[in-house]
Amino acid sequence: VLSKWVGESEKAIREVFRRARQVAPCVVFFDEIDSIAPARGARYDSGVTDRIVNQLLTELDGIQPLRKVVVIAATNRPDILDPALLRPGRFDRLVYVPPPDYKARLEIFKVHTRRVPLASDVNLEELARLTEGYTGADIAAVVREAVMLALRERLEARPVEMKYFLKALEVVKPSLTKDQVEEYERLASEIKRMSSVARRAAPSPYG
């Protein structure tokens, strides 16, 4: 979306929604939306992100209605998003996805080790217990690192032992700390509360 040419970034947003209307029903997904829609006036980039936010708001508000088009976005920095995007009629359903708990981590390990030959001493339950604060991507990295450690020691096909997973945990650290998780939970509660207040304050379409 971002372009060094003036006006091209806004044009890219318009094109995304134009194509969405043409091929509806469809889903438009913006990953890491904070990179293109931070709070206006918060950056010194010649106003390009401000113009992108304005264009997004124009498309979402629907001079041309978005019939059968669902718009979804993901971010790990909800604190820097432009507040206007979270008002009713735009991104008005906010879902906080917490880091995986023990059961989820165990299932993630099972997925990523499905095609990895495991030695009899590998205990996925123990690995799930040891990986609190790890995201799904972190766990995938742990499995890859364990496989690479085994191959570096002896370049031949053989089961990956538990010791390699434990060594991998020393190399791959969790992405999230307890303080960060608590801050995300606080932000999720605050944004949800603000969104709820704005929804109640919004005028009814029925008068």
Rank of each mutant, 00 (worst) to 15 (best):
F30D: 02
A104W: 02
N54F: 14
I80N: 03
K110E: 15
R115W: 08
F91R: 11
N76G: 09
P25L: 11
S46Y: 06
S195G: 10
V122H: 02
R115A: 09
D31R: 07
V53Y: 13
L130C: 04
F17W: 07
P98H: 13
L106A: 08
V142G: 03
F29Q: 05
N54G: 13
A157E: 04
R51P: 12
P83A: 05
A137P: 12
Y134L: 06
L187F: 12
A157Q: 07
I52H: 06
E59T: 08
Y164S: 00
G136Y: 06
L57R: 07
A198L: 02
D101M: 06
V142P: 05
L130Y: 01
I139L: 15
Y184G: 01
R186D: 06
V95P: 08
M162R: 00
Y184V: 02
D61H: 04
T135G: 03
T58Q: 15
K178Q: 14
V122I: 05
M148N: 13
Y206R: 09
K11T: 08
P98F: 11
R105E: 07
I80F: 08
T75C: 09
R43P: 00
A141D: 14
Q22G: 12
V27C: 07
R193Y: 11
E132M: 02
F29N: 03
G47N: 03
A39S: 12
E156P: 01
N123V: 01
R144Y: 02
K167H: 04
T58I: 14
I191S: 10
I63F: 10
I33K: 01
E107P: 02
V122G: 01
Q55G: 14
F165N: 01
G89A: 04
R199C: 08
P117T: 04
E125T: 07
Y96P: 02
K4W: 14
V160R: 00
A201M: 12
T49C: 10
A188M: 12
P88Q: 03
V1E: 10
I139N: 13
E32Q: 13
R21F: 06
K173S: 13
R193S: 12
L81F: 02
N76Y: 00
S195E: 10
R14T: 10
V197T: 02
L56F: 13
I72V: 11
Q55D: 14
R14Y: 10
Q22T: 06
V70W: 05
I191T: 10
I72L: 09
T75W: 04
A146D: 04
V143L: 07
V111F: 05
F30S: 00
Y164E: 00
T49M: 11
P205F: 03
R90G: 00
N54P: 03
D45W: 06
D31V: 04
A141G: 10
K163A: 00
K167A: 09
A119T: 03
R115V: 07
N54V: 15
R115L: 09
T75G: 06
A24L: 11
V147G: 09
A128H: 06
R67K: 14
